[in-house]
Simulated scan of single mutants.
Amino acid sequence: MPATHHVILDTDIGSDVDDLMALALILGTPSLELVGVTTVYGDTALRARIVARVARLTGRSFPVHAGLSTPLSGREVWWAGHEGALYDDLDAETFESDDAVGFLVDRVLARPGEIDVIAIGPLTNIAAAIERDGRFAGAVRHLWVMGGTFTDDEREHNFRSDAVAARIVFDADIPTTVTGLDVTRLIDVRAEQVERIRDSGPLGALIDAEIRQWWAFWDTQWNVPHDPVTVLTLVTPELFTFSPLGRISIDENPADPGLSRHEVSGGLTRVTRLLEADAVSARMVDGIADAAPVAER
């Protein structure tokens, strides 16, 4: 069995279904130990309650902390409007605190060099942790980021939503792997895969409903699993091709922020270049389906 990685997930779960899929994949992967989950961007308390519900559905126990709601850039939060709509009595769910930044700092500094952080939303919490304690950046084992695009001039949502935070994070010299839209779009999720996930148990049924809600929102019959792909760059790196190490620059132009560039010259950041589509897709679906409640294992 691969060595265990101790991970904190930082997420804007509740809008695009891929955050929920990433959380399920982590829970269904024996080589990952979930140290905790932090939420970011918009109504982070609602997002934290969604995570708490997932924990209860799967019989798991891990700390959940709500984080920063407003981007450091001051950019207006994009809100789909359906967040939490599929969860009955969501207000009954509880979480540990509204200080996700404090949790990140305390937990990482307690175990320097041991904890991977998987950041699949705007990088506001991570940037704030870097600024709160100068030791944080040097104590993270590795940062795994979903964001940007590196083959054209498109602005990806996470970097565009808080370009200031992204710049702070990439200037901090944390060992980092970034997976952008140019790679995550090489696979998608379609009906036959959704059926496999749906039949795996209560969490699978919830993911199925969230996927179909997302399809209805965009009037499609498919979606791109950006965030689970990012998780798999940690779990199965052999299925990916990465660039040499370098540095990422972020355009903070308020009128159209978030343009990302990777330059191979010094630095500790690599970007994902390619993936083995069939193998990544199969591993993703299997891992999500394996996030069954403990009682069913």
Rank of each mutant, 00 (worst) to 15 (best):
E195M: 05
L206M: 04
R190M: 01
A66Y: 12
T179E: 09
A100P: 05
R261P: 04
T176K: 07
W79H: 14
N125F: 01
H157Q: 12
P63Q: 03
T58P: 02
L25Y: 00
E154H: 15
V117G: 05
D89L: 02
N223H: 14
G266P: 06
D188R: 14
V183G: 09
P71V: 07
S31K: 13
G59E: 00
P254G: 01
I26V: 03
L259E: 04
D99P: 14
I13Y: 10
N158G: 06
I250C: 01
V231A: 05
R49L: 05
A128W: 08
L34C: 13
I8A: 02
S69K: 01
V231R: 03
A22W: 12
P228Q: 02
L206T: 04
D19L: 13
V280R: 11
V40T: 09
G28T: 02
R56Q: 05
R141M: 06
L245M: 11
A119F: 10
W218M: 15
D116E: 08
R270S: 08
D43L: 12
W222M: 11
E252A: 13
P2E: 15
A163D: 11
D10T: 10
L32H: 03
A22N: 06
W215I: 01
R198E: 04
A279V: 09
D12W: 14
T233K: 08
A92K: 11
L34Y: 00
V7E: 10
T236W: 13
T39H: 01
R167W: 06
S31H: 09
R111Q: 12
P112R: 12
G267W: 06
R132G: 05
E96A: 03
V194E: 10
V54R: 01
T11H: 15
S243Q: 07
S249Q: 10
G74A: 09
A48Q: 01
D182R: 11
V183C: 11
L181I: 06
T4H: 03
G201H: 07
A172M: 08
D10A: 03
N125R: 02
E83S: 04
F150C: 04
H65K: 08
R247M: 04
D12T: 08
M284L: 10
L46H: 13
I187K: 10
I120P: 02
L9I: 14
S161P: 11
R155K: 05
T177I: 11
I187C: 08
D278K: 15
L259A: 12
T58M: 02
P175T: 12
I126Y: 09
D99F: 11
M1H: 03
E238F: 10
V108D: 02
A52D: 00
